[in-house]
Design a protein around this nucleic acid. Sequence first.
DNA 1: TATAAATTTCAGTTTCTACTGAAATTACAG
DNA 2: CTGTAATTTCAGTAGAAACTGAAATTTATA
Lengths: 176, 176
Amino acid sequence: MELTPITKQFILHCGEMGSRWGVNRSVAQIQALLYLIGRPLPADEIAETLSIARSNVSTSLKELLTWRMVRVSHTMGDRRDHFEASGNVWELFKLIVEGRKQREVEPMIALLNGLLASPDISNETPQTQQRIENTLEFVQTLTVWIEEMLRQDSETLMKLLKMGAKVRNFLRGNNE
Amino acid sequence: MELTPITKQFILHCGEMGSRWGVNRSVAQIQALLYLIGRPLPADEIAETLSIARSNVSTSLKELLTWRMVRVSHTMGDRRDHFEASGNVWELFKLIVEGRKQREVEPMIALLNGLLASPDISNETPQTQQRIENTLEFVQTLTVWIEEMLRQDSETLMKLLKMGAKVRNFLRGNNE
DNA sequence: TATAAATTTCAGTTTCTACTGAAATTACAG
DNA sequence: CTGTAATTTCAGTAGAAACTGAAATTTATA
């Protein structure tokens, strides 16, 4: 499949964006391609379209599958696996956030709890102790917020974000 | 300065975390060190403490300075620059978000606007056009939300996040 | 069960970014 | 102004991650 200049730009930019956020370029490009195209593609075709090795596509798809960003589908008369992505940006965003929470935020909480539970913690200056505690509180607060966000469906989420200002006024009225 | 096991773990983990999010390891480690230690340090001492080259510290500090994550200070009788970080996690978080918004989210908006303004856009399938539009709407909504968040002071922000559930109930009562 | 298609694994290679150390520059005290 | 301390620049190097292609494995059809 030949990409148009527009789809090419979109996909390349997503790949670039991916690397800046610690996501493999190929992985990001494949995700962008499947999102834009909006129909299931076999791995061969992905490799050819993006000019990357078939094996690279295989590895990248595996990663996207574990993050549930992509799912497998089949068509009659074709033995090959086909892959498709959700067309809902909010859903995709939620999946990304969910994944990073699990892989990065939770280990951070575990570490900080470990540090604070260690007998050595009393040898640290009160300030250092305080800062580790503050960090933990921060990360935990963030986690709770993320978990709540993830529980919302896409429409509610969008509405929530769009209504930020109203929310803040409400809170002010009730807390200060 | 010799680091304790606890501070060492904290700093190494932050460095690791940094790389996973596309932030240079040294940069993240320096930031973590200055945050934990809570007092201004000269570049020499940072280099020695973290066992990295003095020149690397110079480059990394410059980056942290442009992101306003670190500031310079001086002491009497010492010609060297000293560097310190805010001890407020929320403030630091806001600075990080602000920086990434500028360097990554805004260029994304520019790109998507460009694609949609291009004459070639009409050659794309309606579905592809729709998805690019949806992506733009998503990124813009997110930006507005981020901007509002950044406007809050740390206490308000913390309160807001902690009150997520209440907020959602309020919104439901007013919109559905 | 044989064979052909599809997929995955993995050792070797390439590419990219981070890092170092020496040299150049800048800032400052006497 | 001169010499020294502090900092920055930058070319070269090292290290890490991504990617390839061939071989191995798995899967499915006849």
